[in-house]
């Protein structure tokens, strides 16, 4: 009997861990209106999670677009179908690579900085100080960062995909000499507004929620030591990346 319960222990702990994160999510979501009511703090956080990532995202998107165009061009030319290059690259970007790669880069750039910032606030007792000043740290620290993360993600994903399209244009038209008319019209024919563009953005929004939530949770609940902050930062990237890839599979299978 004892051994049976010992077997259940990890399941129980996993459930409890999931429950704590769910509670954190619900609390943060409930505080979103209060974050909107204080635009100054929210704008400041939008800067720290969004603006600082723009260069990384734009450069990343450009290179992914260049590579995709090169690879697809080689593959398509074997079928004599290079006229579909524009559509194919854009489909790949909007449906899959834009949201997913942006989220992974976001987890590495903005996610870690959120986790380490909150972890440091925990370790230097700034969160406790706020708490005893009768200021709710969830409202004052977590909510504006959470909202900023959710909003920044789709915007960054859009920048990523747009830069990717630019990259594929450079390869397809400037380098391989495809006809611009065929290139652009293949996009408009192949890519559907609703099922490709809108669904991609919904994915991105959900990744934004997951990434911000995980980073903030890990930082907020970091052990209040220097070691704890480091661990929280690492965990935020690891868990975020896994969550993004798993969520991507789930969302893709539901959406398409």
């Amino acid at each position: 009997m004892k051994r049976f319960f010992a077997l259940l222990q990890p399941i129980w702990e996993f459930g409890a861990a999931l429950g704590r994160r769910l509670h954190f999510l619900v609390t943060s979501l409930a505080l979103v209106p209060s974050a909107l009511a204080r635009p100054r703090q929210f704008i400041e956080q939008l800067f720290y999670v969004g603006s600082v990532s723009v260069i990384l995202i734009a450069v990343g998107g450009l290179f992914v677009g260049l590579v995709l165009a090169l690879q697809f061009y080689t593959a398509l030319s074997r079928f004599g179908a290079t006229s579909s290059l524009g559509g194919l690259v854009t489909l790949a970007l909007l449906r899959e690579l834009g949201p997913v790669l942006t989220a992974l880069l976001f987890a590495g750039r903005a996610g870690t900085s959120l986790a380490s910032e909150l972890g440091l606030m925990r370790a230097t007792r700034q969160i406790d100080a706020m708490e005893v000043m009768a200021v709710d740290p969830m409202r004052r620290i977590v909510a504006p960062r959470f909202l900023a993360g959710i909003l920044a993600m789709p915007l960054l994903a859009a920048i990523f995909s747009a830069m990717g399209v630019l990259g594929s244009y450079l390869i397809g038209i400037k380098m391989m000499g495809l006809d611009p008319g065929v290139f652009w019209s293949s996009m408009r024919h192949e890519v559907r507004f609703h099922s490709d563009f809108v669904n991609g953005m919904i994915k991105s929004l959900i990744f934004g929620v997951a990434c911000s939530l995980i980073s903030l949770y890990e930082g907020y609940h970091a052990r209040p030591t220097a070691e704890g902050v480091g661990q929280a930062t690492t965990r935020s990237v690891v868990i975020s990346s896994m969550a993004i890839l798993a969520l991507d599979f789930l969302l893709t299978s539901f959406m398409y």
Binding site: I43, E44, L46, F47, G50, S51, V54, T90, L94, A152, P154, L155, L156, A158, I159, S161, A162, V165, W184, M187, R188, H189, V191, R192, F193, D196, F197, M201
Partner: peptide
């Protein structure tokens, strides 16, 4: 921050209207 949001919205608009049906 304003520039970032503007850039993001412009990218969204571009993708929606220029690359899709």
């Amino acid at each position: 921050t304003g520039l970032f949001v503007l850039l993001g919205v412009a990218a969204l608009f571009y993708l929606a209207t220029q690359t899709t049906n």
